[in-house]
Amino acid sequence: MTPSAACIQLVQRFEGCAKKQADGRFVAYPDPGTGGDPWTVGWGTTGADVKPGVIWSQQQCDARLAKDLASFATQVAAAIGTALTNQHQFDALVSFAYNVGIGNLKGSTLLKQHKAGDYADARTQFARWNKAAGRVLPGLTKRRAAEAALYGS
């Protein structure tokens, strides 16, 4: 499976392409939950190449999002294995993993319940992941609700 337009739109809606400068380029910014690492640029891109002072064009932001989503899709597909998964479930899981990391998805009750075919409980598990640095963040609460809605649609 590959991420659908619904997945891309969901990620873009919640990640935003933030910190646009007057010249149309985007500057890296600290994680809103920690005030530091991981630094982020564009559509929520993090990594060793994203640090203070990094500036990307819109084209760089869009290209990296496409590359990262393809990578997350491959990793999510491997984590799901042979479990029955529809496109909306896959898209929600890719968005989730993009935000919290593939390691967190792999160790989650959300994935365990999905693989067990308990889709109703899996859907409720999204809501548990609304904290950063131990604090509930309203943006994460909204994102998890949107992911759960997509998962269940």
Rank of each mutant, 00 (worst) to 15 (best):
D23T: 08
L10G: 14
D121A: 13
L140M: 08
V41S: 08
W43N: 07
K20D: 03
V100E: 05
I8W: 06
T74Q: 12
C7V: 06
G53D: 10
A127Y: 01
Q87L: 04
G16I: 06
Q75T: 05
L137E: 09
K106F: 06
P32C: 03
R135I: 09
A92E: 02
D37I: 05
T141E: 03
Q59M: 09
A79K: 12
L105P: 14
P38C: 04
Q75E: 13
V11A: 06
G117W: 10
T45K: 06
S57L: 11
S4F: 00
G16H: 10
V136K: 14
T85Q: 03
V41R: 01
V54G: 07
D49R: 14
G44V: 05
W129I: 12
G81S: 09
A78T: 15
A63L: 09
Q59S: 12
Q59N: 07
Y98I: 08
T82F: 01
I55T: 13
V27Y: 00
V27W: 00
F26A: 08
A70I: 13
I102K: 01
F14K: 06
D68E: 09
K142S: 13
T74E: 14
V50H: 03
V94E: 05
Y151L: 04
Q113G: 01
G33Q: 03
R13T: 15
